[in-house]
């Protein structure tokens, strides 16, 4: 039987994934963050206006996990960007539906960036639109679409959102 949107076990696993995936980025553990995704999964960071107007172009658009792994590898080994700390504040997830073991979940986030000399600014506000596969004891992303309100991106967007 598929659990419903109010199933406490499912809710607890979803909450844990939302919180843990954000903390892993903030700890700069991007390999750990990659493990939050299923082997077949998708990750997109798209400006809100593109999403609203039906435009497909995004800022980060990884249609499969191999591309997501490549993105993280480029970031860690090839790209140069502003050294900084990230701090995610993620709101509670709203579970809209559960179908065939996949929960459709929406949440809001803010990311504060701090320079290495301790100056913080709001970097990005937006919403996560997730599809999360929940099995007996684990939850992983099948799809994570980060729709960013702050789509006039200050400086650059390197670290995943």
């Amino acid at each position: 039987m598929t659990p419903g949107t109010h199933d406490p076990q499912l809710r607890s696993l979803v909450d844990d994934l939302l919180t843990r995936s954000a903390l892993l980025i903030d700890r700069d553990d991007l390999d750990g963050w990659l493990d939050c995704f299923e082997a077949e999964s998708r990750y997109v960071v798209i400006p809100r206006d593109n999403r609203d107007r039906g435009f497909p172009a995004a800022l980060i658009h990884c249609d499969n996990k191999a591309r997501l792994i490549d993105r993280v590898a480029c970031l860690c080994h090839a790209n140069k960007f502003n050294p900084h700390y990230d701090r995610h504040i993620v709101g509670a997830g709203c579970i809209h539906a559960v179908t065939d073991g996949i929960a459709t979940v929406e949440s809001s986030f803010m990311i504060v960036q701090t320079t290495l000399t301790g100056v913080s600014t709001l970097f990005c506000a937006g919403g996560y639109e997730d599809r999360i596969r929940v099995t007996g004891s684990a939850a992983k992303f099948v799809e994570r679409v980060a729709v960013i309100d702050t789509f006039s991106v200050p400086t650059l967007l390197a670290t995943p959102v």
């Binding site: 960071v45 497909p56 172009a57 995004a58 800022l59 980060i60 658009h61 990884c62 249609d63 591309r67 993105r71 480029c74 090839a78 790209n79 140069k80 960007f81 502003n82 991106v153 400086t155 650059l156 967007l157 390197a158």
Partner: peptide
């Protein structure tokens, strides 16, 4: 082809694999 262009758009813009550095260099 549209999907190919959207995939290659990963290279440009503020998060671009070959352009994010420009924002940093200018600053």
């Amino acid at each position: 082809m549209t999907a190919h262009r959207v995939n290659q758009a990963n290279m440009v813009g503020p998060a671009g694999l070959i352009s994010m550095e420009d924002g940093e260099a200018i600053e």
